[in-house]
């Protein structure tokens, strides 16, 4: 019991002095970091503290390889390798970038290599672009020197081409009905 009361007293007595001490603690903690790095093992600086304002653009640097999907409701800049689909609003594929998969977006600017498909409202293939596969677009700009092996279809935002066959089916149906009618008549 005495321990409890004692600790309470300590906290009470220290209570008045503590608030300023708390304000001060972050600064010493930061000041101590360099000392911590001076240890023989940590020959590297610790990762820099995260910036308060995170920019909204995602950058996949050239040293990064991603196997899987990327999805963003904002812009993506890709300079590395992606093995999978990419979905973004504005997708910029840099000159060193390689993508195997489909790139979806409102705007896709390709300077690197895509092996797969591009589906975007606006597509720009720069002179260094290497595109193997189809491009589904609404607006397209192809600079001289760009490589394309595939179809360019201005079908973006339109109903799928598979939606077209149904009108043919009713056309094929009437003969059957006629047959039925013929069969039913006698």
């Amino acid at each position: 019991m005495t321990m409890f009361t004692r600790s309470d007293k300590v906290s009470e007595t220290g209570g008045g002095a503590k608030p300023p001490a708390r304000d001060d603690t972050p600064a010493p903690a930061e000041a101590k970091r360099p000392q911590a790095t001076a240890q023989p093992l940590s020959h590297t600086a610790p990762p820099p503290p995260p910036k308060a304002a995170a920019s909204t653009v995602s950058v996949i640097s050239k040293a990064l390889k991603i196997t899987g999907q990327l999805e963003s409701t904002e812009d993506i800049q890709i300079d590395g390798m992606v093995d999978g689909d990419v979905r973004g609003v504005s997708v910029t594929v840099g000159g060193d970038a390689k993508i195997k998969g489909t790139v979806y977006g409102e705007e896709v600017k390709l300077s690197g290599t895509v092996d797969g498909k591009i589906e975007a409202q606006r597509v720009v293939l720069t002179s260094t672009a290497h595109m193997s596969g189809d491009v589904v677009h609404q607006n397209i700009k192809i600079e001289a020197g760009a490589f394309i092996n595939g179809h360019c279809r201005p079908d973006f935002g339109k109903p799928e081409s598979k939606a077209l066959p149904p009108p043919h089916k009713p056309a094929a149906a009437p003969p059957e009905q006629k047959r039925d009618a013929v069969v039913g008549a006698p």
């Binding site: 990762p47 995260p50 995170a54 920019s55 909204t56 653009v57 995602s58 950058v59 996949i60 640097s61 050239k62 040293a63 990064l64 390889k65 991603i66 196997t67 899987g68 999907q69 990327l70 999805e71 963003s72 409701t73 904002e74 812009d75 993506i76 300079d79 590395g80 093995d83 999978g84």
Partner: peptide, 23 residues
């Protein structure tokens, strides 16, 4: 090696492999 930056709105499913820095 430049820093890779995965923004707030980005979701990645899969493996990320780099010899550089990722944020």
């Amino acid at each position: 090696l430049p820093v890779s930056h995965l923004g707030r709105a980005l979701t990645v499913r899969g493996v990320l492999d780099t010899e550089g820095e990722i944020r």
